[in-house]
Design a protein around this nucleic acid. Structure first.
Lengths: 359, 359
DNA sequence: CATAATATGCTCAAACTGAGCATTACGAGG
DNA sequence: CCTCGTAATGCTCAGTTTGAGCATATTATG
């Protein structure tokens, strides 16, 4: 295979797929889904809109991520297309935008076809925006932990893990017999559970949001799995006969996109100064810390956080102080944009504090 | 915005884009592009095929990444679609497959429309495969540094950087006047150059492959930029009047996809044991090191590399040794798959060795 | 003025990193 | 058999980074 010497007339074969007929029946429509995130009141919020086809403004039906079609005629790139309709629909100033993943799943918690029968492929995006007060009429901010109650470890290990998730997953692991071949290569169920949910002494990994979601989905424990008619999905009930729901479901595969966004954002925080996109121009270090903690779902060691941020040259003093709730006044800082031109990967590579103390 | 109370009849508006007419003219065709990578003879190789429409088997025309259409009717997911046609066309066993990015660019080194007038959006993939000897007729392996000569720092800093790239980029930076608004927000040209190419004492960052490619493209120094008719792109010639080409160009936006793949792979190596996908079942630590070095384009400290790999529990001894070229026989190891179930992020977080010595 | 509540400063041991020196085990050549 | 060349493998060490906790500073309040 040293030299690329064509030996057949059909040397160009690999590309023929694009060149010759039958292409238009492979046409799809691209939907751009945005996970637009902000943090306010120390809570990460995700922008949701009413689900497609809903006219009733019932709060439960606000379970979709905003999305819009990508029109190749009007937009030069996918990113521009996204910015455009987000701007148009929400009037939000998006600070940071990042493409997450392209989902083309059929029959797997995605929208199969749209109203005209076209297949839809959805490109997920993560976008960050500063809190702003302007009332939105057709969009609302929701605490993202409503959809992922097991992801918030700030106050304590979420009880839902030991009380509900672990038992149900163990049950599923016990039914290993029915494991598919695909699954065997991905490791035994028990191991996946341990690693994902930090059981048996394994350390909790804040970045595994998507893995955990996929695991729960695969185990048939999420409403979406039920809806999609997954094999081992079935409704479960607690002692009082109420259906067990692990977090609020979302339309289509939107919860999966949100999980992807959370994973990506939590990872990114550690090597890119993205947290500042969510801060006002001037802030105290503790405010910054609270924002980061909200996103990570973890507490960090206060003094070490300060050391990291200051020594890392990520902020500069403004000289001003703020007299807020009790205690010594806090100094106010501002993001040092120049750091982007100095260090290669300026982020907040932080470790969760083991002690619960925030002193 | 506390409660999502719909106030308008068109509360569901944000989703209407998908629901009502005019959708089919937004239809696109999805092309799956694969950057299939292997390492042999201590050189990273990328699988290339003849460019679309070429019947002549001229080696220069082998400058395209293999790609195939995504057919939503036949494939449940994008990943499965990719695996399917790669398997069919190349008969390669793909070990590791990862989606990279979805490019929807128009007028920007991407294929605008296919032969039938449909817009094409391309989804890039990275795939790893073990070296195998089977002759391929319509695909060939090429050293990826042919396309990115400035990325291989193993033997020395690539001379092309100081001799050609730096001067041309400086010239471009001097013409800052014509900088667009978009560019200003992305930081001054000089800073981007410094950070990307490790000039003025900035440390070389092996992961910035894509940033460097984009910078060169934006500066109009790449053949693709010329071809796409970018504003400040123009051919340049050296003293002997030969056109200056920075690496071999590729068809469409394939070099950009390769750059994305390289960035991603180089980053991934450090926190996931992907290098083993490229190794035979049994190998010596130095062979592993050589493979990693080939991908990173950097040398690493031999003893420390060994310490990292062994103490990290990534490998296990086989007991066997190999008597190869001179010197003490090397012990043979095998990948410890179990590590995946033990540690959360087992990778080779390695630092480049500052000394050139490999002793 | 004492107390509560924070913000901010500082210290320290343990773990990790980056480098270099030392030792070991073979094959080839005298 | 002994010596040399060549790698592989072992080990040490200083400098840095991390994870935690103690101590001090500065307000508001009663």
């Amino acid at each position: 295979m040293r030299k690329p010497v064509g030996k057949k007339a059909k040397a160009a074969a690999p590309n023929d797929g694009m060149a010759n007929g039958g292409m238009t029946d492979k046409a799809v429509v691209i939907g751009l889904n945005a996970a637009i995130v902000t943090v306010s009141d120390d809570q990460p919020k995700i922008l949701v809109v009413p689900r497609t086809g809903t006219n009733i403004a019932a709060p439960e039906s606000w379970d979709a991520l905003p999305f819009g079609p990508f029109d190749p005629l009007h937009h030069r790139t996918l990113d521009l297309g996204l910015r455009d309709w987000v701007q148009e629909q929400t009037h939000l100033a998006l600070g940071y935008v990042e493409q997450l993943y392209t989902f083309g799943d059929r029959g797997r918690n995605a929208m199969e076809v749209n109203e005209e029968g076209a297949h839809v492929v959805s490109v997920g995006y993560l976008a960050l925006t500063r809190t702003h007060d302007g009332e939105q009429e057709d969009a609302a901010w929701r605490d993202w932990y409503q959809f992922f109650p097991w992801e918030d470890w700030r106050d304590h290990k979420p009880p839902i893990i030991d009380q509900t998730i672990a038992p149900l997953l163990r049950e599923w692991a016990a039914a290993q017999a029915e494991a598919s071949a695909e699954e065997l290569t991905r490791g035994k169920r028990r191991d996946r559970i341990r690693l994902c949910f930090g059981l048996d002494g394994v350390q909790w990994d804040d970045e595994k949001v998507l893995e955990r979601y996929e695991l729960l989905y695969g185990a048939g424990l999420l409403r979406e799995a039920l809806r999609d008619g997954r094999q081992n999905a079935r409704a479960r009930y607690d002692a009082e006969g109420r259906e067990i729901t692990l977090g609020l479901p979302m339309q289509f595969d939107h919860r999966r996109i949100l999980a992807t966004a959370m994973s990506r954002l939590r990872a990114k925080l550690k090597y890119r100064p993205v947290a500042f996109e969510l801060m006002p121009p001037v802030f105290t270090l503790y405010e910054l810390q609270k924002t980061v903690e909200a996103l990570l779902g973890l507490h960090v060691h206060k003094q070490n956080f300060r050391r990291l941020v200051e020594k890392g040259g990520l902020v500069e003093r403004t000289g001003k102080v703020t007299t807020r709730t009790g205690g010594r006044p806090a100094e106010q800082f501002r993001f040092r944009r120049e750091v982007l031109n100095e260090r290669p990967a300026p982020g907040l590579r932080l470790a969760p504090s083991k002690s619960r103390a925030t002193s």
